[in-house]
Design a protein around this nucleic acid. Structure first.
Lengths: 163, 163
DNA sequence: ATATAGACGCAATATAATTGCGCGGGCGCG
DNA sequence: CGCGCCCGCGCAATTATATTGCGTCTATAT
């Protein structure tokens, strides 16, 4: 789950395992083995191998943000007034300290970021966008409020892979 | 994990459980109980309760898309030329059939979507944006290519919650 | 003050995870 | 073409975890 070694050659069974764990990460190894068509011991060894090689980076419960009091999810495109590495890194370091920032993607080669945030309510959202606007070297802030999410798949398609 | 009942009153232990499972969804119940400060049986009962009430929607392995042959991740802002419900739903239904579309968020009240996609390579990415551009009722397509992702947290902050 | 519901932990049982090991197939070398 | 080696499999045994039943305790409402 951390060791990060060489690239592996994955076969059909490995892909099936990845697909199943992407879908249900808490499935028992017995059930996983059944679905993969092999017995539990080699199945577990494959899972461990995938974890150690970094193909599986971790496992996460998918929680209901709305029920947990995070009524709002939104994206923000942030433009910085500089493309200097130090400025970019400072911005990343800053937002990394905000728990409401769940994702931070650098886009278009530098100077711009796409963030995904959550907020407890509209006031909280405004506070967050204000904080972003006032942050050092921030030139532009465009908010994309999520009205509804019709699809939110984790991971990648597991059909026709290279691996 | 699906039954969806009433809202629950969550206490500190429930929040700890959610936080831990959000962080490591495959943790054993014994370890989870240890961290939550209670014994395994009530811990498991709490987890089941959280699943059944929909606070935990599922568990997913976090796979390495890059290693699995999906070199490119990108976002696309799609503007439709109509805000008619039938058009919006048709668009959602269309992209729901594309495995490369991992997320689809309706933004700004209608007519616009933010999608997250993955592609095997640049040619594949171009093909996807072309397909989007040519889709019915699509007026505008803006691509936000991800250069690097400095943060990608799952779920929501689990501090100071309501529940 | 007392009955009641809810949550806990212990103990027992059922399952699952993990390890050791021998077997058999595929591959490369002689 | 045959021989051995390496790898991955499955079985069987062991250890650990998940799950269930149940008696107890505490906070709450009557």
């Amino acid at each position: 789950m951390q060791t990060e070694t060489e690239p592996l050659v994955l076969d059909e069974i490995d892909r099936k395992i990845l697909a199943e764990l992407q879908e249900d990460g808490r499935m028992t190894n017995v059930e996983l083995a059944r679905r993969a068509g092999i017995s539990p011991p080699p199945c577990l060894r494959r899972v461990r191998r995938l974890e150690e090689a970094g193909y599986i980076k971790g496992y996460h419960a998918d929680t209901d943000g709305h029920k947990l009091g995070w009524q709002i999810a939104f994206f923000v495109i942030v433009g910085l007034e500089s493309q200097k590495l130090s400025v970019l890194e400072a911005f990343e370091a800053l937002v990394a300290t905000w728990p409401e920032v769940r994702e931070c993607h650098m886009i278009r080669g530098g100077g711009d970021f796409l963030l995904k945030l959550v907020a407890r309510d509209a006031a909280h959202e405004n506070q967050l966008t204000q904080r972003l606007t006032n942050a050092a070297h921030v030139a532009r802030v465009q908010t994309l409020q999520t009205i509804r999410t019709s699809r939110a798949l984790s991971g990648v398609p597991m059909d026709r892979l290279y691996g």
